[in-house]
Design a protein around this nucleic acid. Structure first.
Lengths: 139, 139
DNA sequence: CAGCATCCCCATCGATACTG
DNA sequence: CAGTATCGATGGGGATGCTG
């Protein structure tokens, strides 16, 4: 989680605006872009959000669904997502305790822009792989 | 893997497919999501792409524009972006050598989905910060 | 079942110095 | 100017074990 530079921007909505504003990193406050991207770029967060798309899931169910994530990382990632308000955590004090995680409205809304990005990734992955092969061949 | 019920949203169908795809962790390179996200999540890549949006830039100009990036990281990040085919590298063998970097068509196309994501970040940053404050207060 | 706690590896990144 | 080379700090994240 890297923090620094790239101050907050007032009424920017386009990348162009951000490119322009970036020349002045006087405000040390957290940049929304970095803030979100650092989270999205983390290894498991996205997989967890995706795993929660169909509906609420319990801890173990999540672990199975995500795949080879360790309990440690699952716990840690869930905490961060909960802290950011993207998922909710409901504890049922049953005999063996049960905890259910679910997407919040904010979490669901995050999946739309993420879907755009992953769709791009899906559509252009071949091109990227080809570019890499060409680059490596030239070396 | 089994398809994930309902999801009238087309983009979400794709995401669900990606989730299923991850079921095979033996070849992580085969997952477009991780492939792209790892790059996007890196510290400087996005800043560099944004810095190149207005047009081609030379090494030093990029370094000034991005901010406090070291030459080491700038070089490294540029190499990866070039390898992925997102930017091009043009060398002018002048007296003091000049090298110009520019977005490729692929690189430009990547900025669209990224803009969607950063726009979301911009719009929802306040909510996230509020959620964090609430979470921290509860602890 | 859900989750902390602990140990440890290694990838990422920063700083500095050197070069064609 | 545009890098390369090297060292070192930081922390993400895997493996394992323990608990309410």
């Amino acid at each position: 989680m890297t923090r620094e530079q790239s101050g907050n921007h007032p009424a920017r909505e386009t990348l162009a605006g951000m490119a322009a504003l970036h020349g002045a990193p006087e405000n040390p406050a957290a940049c929304p872009i970095r803030d979100v991207l650092d989270r999205v770029g983390q290894k498991w967060t996205l997989l967890i959000l995706i795993a929660l798309m169909p509906g609420p899931r319990r801890f173990s169910a999540l672990q199975r669904r995500v795949g080879d994530i360790s309990k440690r990382m699952l716990t840690q990632s869930l905490r961060e997502l909960e802290r950011d308000g993207l998922i909710s955590r409901q504890v049922y004090p049953t005999k063996p305790p049960a905890v259910e995680y679910a997407l919040t409205a904010l979490g669901r809304s995050a999946l739309d822009p993420i879907a755009v990005l992953t769709d791009w990734a899906d559509r252009n992955h071949d091109r990227i792989r080809a570019a890499r092969a060409a680059f490596d061949a030239a070396a």
